[in-house]
């Protein structure tokens, strides 16, 4: 219990002393996970909407694969990205392994199926004739898609929250492709793992609390936007 209280005390000290290292780690976490979430939004929503609105051979298989991807283990993604970016790997020439860019790629791969799966379900859940009604009102295909996205905005914001939540809290892939390099690729999760390994539980607890506050703040903002949109 004392250990835990010490951790909270340390967290408050780190937060209110504006410790440059902690601020850097927090900012990098936000930057990497935020960028990965934005990328996953773009790819996941585009593909999710396209799959939901089109009928093609193998659609069910594709939906099953997307749903499976929603539970993609971060370490498997980390392993895959590491192999791809390894010096002798297909993308080794890019020399981005153990960089924040590699972490963004890995996190985007983790978040994309989450956003895609929820987007797909959200669009499919809209009334079947809504698409036809919008087209009948004179919409172009692009206008129709935009209106459908607006109609599904509540679950789509939930998709963004789920995607962000999935990557801000993952550690396996970030350690494997980022390397946890101090001042360069160290984020809140990797730093927490490292401090725990070193026995610095107070620092680890402090970093954990900051991570929770960060995740809570981002989700609170998104929830606030989401609930403002809720029909009354």
């Amino acid at each position: 219990m004392e250990l835990f209280l010490d951790g909270i005390k340390k967290a408050l000290e780190l937060i209110f002393s504006f410790d440059p290292e902690v601020l850097g780690i927090t900012f990098l976490s936000l930057k990497i996970s935020g960028t990965a979430t934005l990328i996953s939004m773009f790819i996941g929503m585009s593909i999710g909407v396209a799959v939901a609105l089109n009928n093609f051979f193998g659609k069910r298989l594709i939906i099953s694969l997307i749903n499976t991807g929603m539970g993609l283990p971060p370490v498997v993604v980390g392993l895959f990205v590491t192999i791809m970016l390894w010096r002798n790997g297909p993308f080794g020439f890019m020399e981005i392994l153990y960089t924040p860019t590699a972490m963004i790629i890995a996190q985007a791969i983790i978040a994309t199926p989450i956003v895609m799966g929820i987007t797909l379900a959200a669009i499919q859940h809209l009334p079947e004739n809504l698409r036809l009604q919008i087209l009948s009102l004179g919409a172009t295909r692009l206008q129709m898609v935009w209106l459908l996205i607006k109609e599904a905005r509540l679950p789509l914001l939930a998709a963004v929250m789920a995607g962000f939540g999935g990557v801000i809290s993952e550690v396996g892939a970030s350690i494997m492709v980022g390397g946890n390099i101090k001042g360069y690729s160290r984020v809140l999760t990797t730093a927490t793992v490292m401090e725990t390994g070193k026995g610095n539980f107070d620092t680890a607890i402090a970093l954990g609390i900051i991570l929770l506050i960060l995740a809570f703040t981002v989700n609170a903002i998104l929830t606030s936007i989401q609930q403002k949109q809720r029909p009354r």
Binding site: P127, N129, L130, L132, Q133, S136, L137, G138, L147, K150, E151, P231
Partner: peptide, 12 residues
């Protein structure tokens, strides 16, 4: 032209 469906299908 425009079509009106049996269910009103209003936007949210």
């Amino acid at each position: 032209l425009v079509m009106v469906f049996q269910e009103p299908l209003l936007l949210n």
